[in-house]
Simulated assay, not measured.
Amino acid sequence: MRQPARHTRRFSHRLLPLLACFATVTANAQALQHNPFDDPFVAVTSGLPNCPVPQEPVFTDEQYKAEAHDRAQRGVSCWMAGRCRLHSAYLYDKEIIPRVKQAITVAGRFTNTSVWALGQRRYVWLKGCVATAEQAAELERLVRTIDDVDGVQNELMVGSQGQPPYATAR
């Protein structure tokens, strides 16, 4: 039986640690998926400096699989109950979030805020910083009036100092 050339064996021994490293990096890269459901997540305003930037939706592979199943059930329940014209509540989000941005921009009263909007299942999460508590309440009221919005989660903080009520980007 023919033996491989000596230089080939040396090369393969040097390559093994590199391959192991690559496999580890690849596995870690797949461990977290950034916004795997493509939920609309946009910066709406940027007028308040030093506001902590919210983290986009992040899931591990295991969380993603569990969430996919739950989303299938939750998404269709709206349609089955006769409250949605589309067969999944998640299908509205890509239309809702641009309307949220437009409504806030057109209002013209929020230029001194830094706000992000996330849409999931006809719900809108408002995250970021406002100058006053009244602005936070006014933003929430405004977004609730937008067609197809089923609810608003207000995670806005007054000012840009302190711990925000949302996970931040790293």
Rank of each mutant, 00 (worst) to 15 (best):
Thr26Val: 10
Phe110Met: 09
Cys21Ile: 11
Lys65Gln: 07
Ala27Arg: 11
Pro52Asp: 06
Gly108Leu: 15
Val44Ile: 15
Cys78Ile: 13
His34Ile: 00
Asp39Trp: 11
Arg85Ala: 02
Ala29Asn: 07
Ile97Val: 15
Gln120Ile: 14
Gly108Met: 15
Ser77Thr: 12
Lys94Glu: 06
His69Val: 12
Leu86Ile: 04
Phe37Lys: 09
Arg74Val: 11
Asn35Tyr: 02
Ile96Ser: 02
His87Gly: 02
Trp116Leu: 05
Leu16Ser: 00
Thr26Met: 13
Arg71Asn: 09
Leu18Ile: 11
His69Pro: 01
Arg85Gly: 01
Lys127Ser: 01
Glu67Pro: 00
Arg122Ala: 05
Pro49Ser: 06
Pro17Lys: 01
Pro36Arg: 13
Arg109Glu: 13
Ala27Gly: 03
Leu19Met: 04
Arg83His: 12
His34Phe: 00
Gln120Tyr: 14
Ser88Ile: 06
Gln102Met: 07
Leu86Thr: 01
Leu126Pro: 02
Leu16Glu: 00
His87Asn: 05
Asn112Phe: 11
Pro49Cys: 06
Val44Gln: 13
Thr26Ala: 07
Pro57Leu: 06
Thr45Lys: 10
Ala29Ser: 09
Tyr90Gln: 03
Leu86Lys: 01
Asp70Thr: 03
Thr113Tyr: 08
Leu91Gln: 07
Trp125Thr: 08
Ala43Arg: 13
Ala81Ile: 01
Glu56Arg: 08
Ala43His: 05
Arg74Phe: 15
Val44Gly: 12
His13Phe: 06
Phe22Asn: 05
Arg109Thr: 10
Ala68Met: 05
Gln30Gly: 10
Lys94Thr: 03
Gln102Glu: 14
Ala107Gln: 13
Leu32Phe: 12
Phe110Tyr: 15
Ala23Pro: 03
Phe59Thr: 00
Leu16Cys: 00
Val115Glu: 11
Asp61Gly: 12
Cys84Asn: 01
Ile96Lys: 02
Leu126Ala: 03
Arg83Cys: 07
Ala29Trp: 14
Gly82Met: 08
Cys21Asn: 07
His34Val: 02
Arg85Gln: 05
Ala31Cys: 07
Ala117Met: 13
Tyr92Ile: 03
Gly128Ile: 03
Trp116Gln: 06
Ala107His: 14
Ala23Ile: 10
His87Ile: 04
Phe22Val: 13
Glu62Arg: 09
Gln73Thr: 05
Leu118Ser: 09
Pro57Ile: 06
Arg14Ser: 03
Gln30Met: 15
Leu126Phe: 05
Leu15Lys: 09
Phe22Lys: 02
Thr26Ile: 11
Val76Ala: 15
Tyr92Thr: 00
Thr45His: 12
Gly128Ala: 00
Tyr90Ser: 05
Arg121Thr: 14
Pro17Ser: 00
Ala117Tyr: 12
Ile104His: 02
His87Trp: 07
Lys101Asn: 09
Phe41Asp: 08
